[in-house]
Design a binder for these strands. Structure first.
Lengths: 124, 124
DNA sequence: TCTCGTTATGAAGTGATATTCATATCGTTC
DNA sequence: GAACGATATGAATATCACTTCATAACGAGA
């Protein structure tokens, strides 16, 4: 479990991130947006989803808006007012997107483990 | 090459990052440290390397110090004073580390392209 | 022994992001 | 038709990482 002193050898993990970006490097769809969409698919609410993830509604809303603007299609079908005040439904296109993103993550996950073992061998 | 209006479909790129971290998620060795060590190996100077990369000496120094503390071994052999004011030599262990990191990146690079093509197919 | 350039390190300033706050709109339901 | 709760959005505030600044230590060479 790794030592706790300031100078010992600690357990090291391999980490990675995958995200879609514009050419200029602006992040568009990454882990945050992926998780948001997953939760919205379940909760049918952007507010509930942002609460779930512990990020501000303001940011969640802005992130998805930016993603939609960039992608050029809707990720959510929004409804204001009404029974529960409103709701947000994930569009079919967004569902496809999160499925594809999930597969991408899986591919990376599979490779990270092997690559990390290889990495550690190289250090011996 | 992607439209420029606010709502069109733009060209999307796939991005990724790989780095070593502690269990608590603190980044230890990533692209920055890798590049620093590469440049120090060449320049034999932390100052020159940080200038090369356009990052502050303060950060470069802090990053490598943190990495060394965490890993539990020296990445640099430092010398203060003397002929040119001082110098920093990359240790053998650090050389092994950057070689292994390089191989890791290469592994990912090779597979990212294929994964991205797969990703885009899934969206059709 | 004085100088010079690099390493070393705390402290203060800055800028990008995210959170908080404030307010408006909307549409079922009671 | 008044109320409730989610969406919508600008503005102010807070956070956090990085840069800048300031200052010391060091040691070969002039």
């Amino acid at each position: 479990m790794g030592m706790n002193d300031k100078t010992g050898q600690h357990k090291v993990l391999l980490n990675y991130k995958v995200w879609l970006s514009s050419i200029t490097g602006n992040g568009i769809v990454g882990e945050t947006e992926y998780r948001l969409l997953k939760h919205i698919a379940n909760d049918k609410s952007l507010k509930a989803a942002s609460d779930d993830l512990g990020i501000s509604y303001r940011k969640a809303w802005g992130d998805l808006k930016k993603a939609e603007e960039f992608l050029g299609y809707q990720l959510l079908d929004r409804q204001r007012g009404g029974k529960n005040g409103g709701n947000s439904i994930v569009t079919d296109k967004a569902l496809k997107l999160i499925e594809a993103y999930e597969a991408l993550q899986q591919t990376f996950d599979d490779q990270v483990e092997a690559a990390f073992i290889e990495f550690k061998n190289k250090l011996k």
